[in-house]
Design a protein around this nucleic acid. Structure first.
Lengths: 144, 144
DNA sequence: CAAGATTGAGTCGTCAATCTTT
DNA sequence: AAAGATTGACGACTCAATCTTG
């Protein structure tokens, strides 16, 4: 991209869009089933498979201490539990509870609909390709 | 865009990118001149012109109470001051102090360089066009 | 010592309630 | 009553320090 000003403006556009959509998606989940966006992404990841804390932090892009605090709150609310990790007595394996799975299942359709309505619907195939290209170049340029 | 899964995955890519870049930009500012990203965007906006609180909240995309708390903290640190708004005895006009302007000026070059290096450098002109198209369609679809 | 994870204290954000001026 | 803005209580995040097992 050419000018610095254009680049900064583009970044601000992306940021503003991200903030707005994040807010809508979060509010939707709170109103539908009473869980936060962060609860939701944790439950989503765990619905695929149980995970170690740092593993979960890495795939979700959250800091470990933030996730650790968050998992404590989720555990208090009965959404997840911590089990001893097989073959490694450090740390734990995080697993969803029945209640956690139930809430996730209830939340999913509305969330998918909102992602569609607020985001995906406004993205053509060509634009999606451009966005994937950018995110993957940026990911590749960052420390793992 | 076709599939729901692809749309969700795309959104998650965007989100992850946004989180990562936000973190880097924030850390850069803290290390360079000791202000947060939020301090920086407030100072940037005010460097163009003094603003009313709600006006500032709108252009920056922040919630008014969050911004109000943040402005209090910035005022305590001497980065901004509140003046009576001309012709309207409700609320205030937010103005940068000399110290605020100085910090913003010191922070700007490094920040621009980081936006460039972490974001803009990975975006071609065609991709920038696609991103602008998407953000503007989404902005148009949202409540003002 | 490194990897996996937690903790504590201080800072910041959220939501609803409130206050004043228009 | 609406617009402009603030407050307070509570919840969540951050950073550095710590603890335990590998």
């Amino acid at each position: 991209m050419p000018s610095t000003d254009e680049g900064l403006a583009l970044w601000r556009q992306v940021q503003l869009m991200h903030w707005q959509l994040s807010y809508l998606l979060h509010r939707g989940l709170v109103e539908d089933v009473g869980i936060s966006y962060q609860d939701f992404i944790v439950l989503s990841e765990l619905s695929v498979q149980a995970r170690r804390v740092l593993d979960l932090a890495r795939v979700l892009g959250l800091e470990k201490s933030r996730l650790s605090h968050h998992l404590n709150r989720m555990a208090e609310r009965g959404l997840i539990t911590k089990q001893p990790a097989p073959g490694d007595r450090r740390g734990a394996l995080i697993v969803t509870t029945t209640a956690g799975r139930r809430l996730h299942r209830r939340a999913l359709p509305g969330h998918l609909e909102r992602v569609h309505r607020t985001f995906t619907d406004h993205v053509t195939n060509a634009e999606a390709k451009a966005i994937r290209s950018v995110t993957s170049k940026i990911r590749a340029s960052l420390p793992p």
